Simulated assay, not measured.
Amino acid sequence: MATPTQSIREIISSQPSAAAILRRFDIDVCTHAGETLDEACADLQLSVEQVLEKLEHDAAVSTGAEFADPNELSPSRLIQHIVRVHHRNVRQELPRLVELADTVAERYGERAPELRTVRSVATELHAEMVEHIRKEEQILFPYIAQVNEAPLLAFRPPQQCFSRVGQPVFMMVQEHERGKLLLADLRRLTSDFKPPVWACSTFVALYSGLRIFVDRFEEHIRLENEVLFPRAMQMEAELMQGGAR
């Protein structure tokens, strides 16, 4: 959690999305990098309490701080959490990271050529993951929720483009693996997300943001691969067995 006595650089290192929030308050994260939040706000005649409130809200929403044990949630509630927290993270964080990667590559690409590849991989990851979550939200998740909430309707046509839930699940798992490969490329290109000593605050925000995105993405796919998808296939199997009696 950000504090008034932390430097802008420290805040961004622990909460990369803070860079965008600070910019909304006209706090230049490079110019004020070495200043504490208190000092930066005093320079600009800002309310440090108001800035902290925005930073705290962003941290709570982005991490899904209210989330309970996934095994205690119904599949429908788990889907709501995945969409509200993890899909939101993909939609908000990846475009921000692509923008940062573009800025850093343009500024430091001659000094660190790998940054151009980082930009390319981040752009590819964004395109693939946005399409991935679109398919989950429009096709797979509604079906799983229907099996959970109204099972007798789940096998009615039309709009069913698969005969068993295992088919789209297999495709989504394969796409998860593709996303993990792209993130592994980013980890390698960035030396495990360690910025050089000469990196500016924007550079630091990019690497910190990528590191945190990887951690959250791993939790995202764990919830789907290990919790939601197995339960969906089990529900469908039980429903079909019941219908066969």
Rank of each mutant, 00 (worst) to 15 (best):
P168Y: 02
Y143N: 03
M172R: 03
R156E: 12
L182P: 07
Q160I: 04
D192P: 00
E149V: 11
P157V: 06
L181I: 11
P196K: 03
F162G: 02
L189Q: 06
V165L: 15
V147M: 15
F170L: 11
K194D: 11
D192F: 06
P168F: 02
Q146K: 15
P142T: 04
L183M: 15
I144M: 06
W198H: 05
R178M: 10
L152I: 12
H176V: 10
H176M: 08
A199V: 01
Q167S: 09
Q174P: 00
L152A: 15
T190M: 01
K180R: 15
V165E: 08
L153K: 13
F193Q: 03
R156P: 00
A154L: 01
E149P: 01
V165Q: 04
A154W: 01
R188K: 12
T190W: 03
V197K: 13
K180D: 15
M172F: 11
M171L: 12
Y143V: 05
Q160N: 10
P168I: 00
R188T: 13
N148K: 00
M172P: 03
P196F: 05
P195D: 02
Q167F: 11
F170P: 00
H176E: 07
D192V: 04
Q160S: 05
L183G: 04
F170N: 12
L153C: 09
H176S: 09
F193W: 08
R164A: 12
S191R: 13
P157F: 04
A145Y: 01
K180P: 00
A150E: 14
Y143M: 07
N148Y: 01
M172W: 07
L153D: 10
L182V: 06
V165N: 07
K194V: 13
L182M: 15
E175W: 05
V173Q: 14
L186K: 09
R188W: 05
P151S: 11
F155L: 13
F162A: 10
R178Y: 06
V169F: 04
V165K: 06
N148D: 15
S163M: 08
P168C: 03
R187T: 13
E177L: 15
D185A: 09
L189E: 05
K180C: 14
L181V: 15
H176T: 09
L186G: 02
V165R: 05
P151M: 06
A184Y: 01
V197E: 14
C161E: 13
V197T: 13
A145F: 03
Q159W: 09
N148R: 02
R156G: 08
P195C: 03
L186R: 07
R187Y: 07
D185L: 10
W198L: 04
Q160P: 00
I144L: 08
R188V: 06
G166C: 00
P196V: 10
Q174N: 13
Y143G: 00
V169Y: 00
T190N: 02
T190D: 03
R187W: 02
L189N: 04
M172S: 10
V147Q: 09
P195M: 04
P157N: 08
